[in-house]
Computed example of a mutant assay.
Amino acid sequence: MEIPTANLLIALAVTTGAGLATGLGSLFVFAQKKPNARLLAFGLAFAGGAMVFVSLSEILNKSVWSFSQGYGPRLGFSYGTFAFLAGVGLIMLVDHLVPNPHERLEVDDPFFREHNAAYIKRVGLLTALAITAHNFPEGLATFFATLENPGVGLPLAFAIAIHNIPEGIAIAVPVYFATNNKAYAFGACLVSGLAEPVGAIVGYALLRPWLSDAVFGSVFGIIAGVMVFLALDELLPAAKRYSKGHETVYGLVSGMAVLALSLVLFKW
């Protein structure tokens, strides 16, 4: 299946933009002595709602449609469902092998006062490595979604970008307060964020010789499963942890609403 170079470049640019949002998290840390917990909770839930909505309403449907082109509607639905469950299983395995730590983001946390700088720096680097590992499937998701349909890929990239900002904070806080070096903390965030376009390039290079409706169906189904799992396992629990009122549910509903409206506009 031949794909125009322009489409590839657009998909890669969108994926890179979403990944670089990780760096914004570090800027947020540098600008404030203490992150705004309520805003963070709303943003996490917003991203979670957007991810769940686009995964179940668009990406999973893309999987079923792609499979249906070669196997008919009945088998297409079945294969799409199996691919979705495979995606859930895959990210569960990744999460088991490389747990994604969610350190407290408050800079006055006793953790930062009671441990030495070397240990805090190590925690920051381990956090960066874990988040980087989780960014590979996110980059693949954004890239293939944009490649197939920018109307789906752009909203997904927006949701992932929001999700990446608090990840940048989680990386920058321990690194910055251990080293007192803004460039070092910002660089750690950027490296983690660049895992998304790298994951997209590697994934596309591996799958390119076999691109077909069945491959697209498999990729989209797996992506949908991965995104739903990440939203339910990471984003929403983290949002609830930092909320002080109804920020989680407001963010969840707002994320779904904004994503739904954006998809409606893209279809006009």
Rank of each mutant, 00 (worst) to 15 (best):
E103V: 13
L93K: 01
M227W: 04
V264C: 06
T142E: 06
F266T: 01
G17K: 02
T127S: 15
A118P: 01
L232D: 13
G72C: 05
S192G: 04
A41I: 11
F111Y: 14
I171E: 10
H134V: 02
I165C: 04
G80D: 13
R122F: 05
F186T: 06
A133T: 02
E114A: 09
A83G: 08
V123P: 04
Q69Y: 11
S66P: 02
F84A: 02
T142R: 00
N149S: 15
G151Y: 01
A118G: 05
A170L: 07
W65Q: 14
K244T: 04
L232N: 04
S254D: 02
P137Y: 09
I169K: 00
I131K: 05
A118E: 07
A47R: 03
A224V: 01
A239H: 01
V175F: 07
N61R: 15
T142F: 00
A45N: 09
L24Q: 10
L20N: 11
L232W: 05
P137H: 10
E196T: 06
G153H: 00
A31Q: 13
R104T: 13
L230E: 14
K240E: 12
V191F: 04
K267E: 14
F84L: 08
F112H: 10
A118C: 05
G17E: 09
F216H: 11
G187K: 09
G17C: 05
R241T: 03
I3C: 08
E196L: 00
M92A: 14
L44M: 15
S63P: 10
G124D: 10
K240H: 10
M51I: 11
F144I: 00
P137K: 07
N181P: 03
A170D: 12
L8V: 11
R208Q: 15
I3Y: 06
G251I: 08
I10M: 05
L105V: 15
L125C: 03
T146D: 01
A128Q: 09
S63K: 01
H134Y: 08
A239P: 02
V226Y: 03
A257H: 00
P73T: 15
I160A: 09
K244C: 01
A13F: 14
S66C: 13
P110L: 09
L235A: 06
Y204W: 12
I120G: 08
E114F: 02
K34Q: 15
L39H: 02
G124E: 09
V258F: 15
A159S: 12
G25V: 09
A45K: 08
I120F: 11
W268S: 13
S78D: 06
L60Y: 07
A157E: 11
V152H: 03
E103D: 12
H96E: 08
S243R: 09
K121T: 12
V173R: 12
G153I: 00
A37S: 14
S212H: 03
Y71T: 12
F216T: 00
A141C: 08
A145Y: 06
A231T: 08
K34Y: 10
L156A: 13
F53Y: 14
G225A: 00
N100Y: 11
E167A: 04
V226E: 01
L236P: 12
V173G: 03
S55Q: 10
S212E: 09
P155D: 13
V175L: 04
A224I: 05
A183D: 04
F216G: 04
L85G: 07
G225F: 01
L129W: 02
L56K: 13
P99E: 05
L12T: 00
A37R: 12
A260P: 07
T5F: 10
K121S: 15
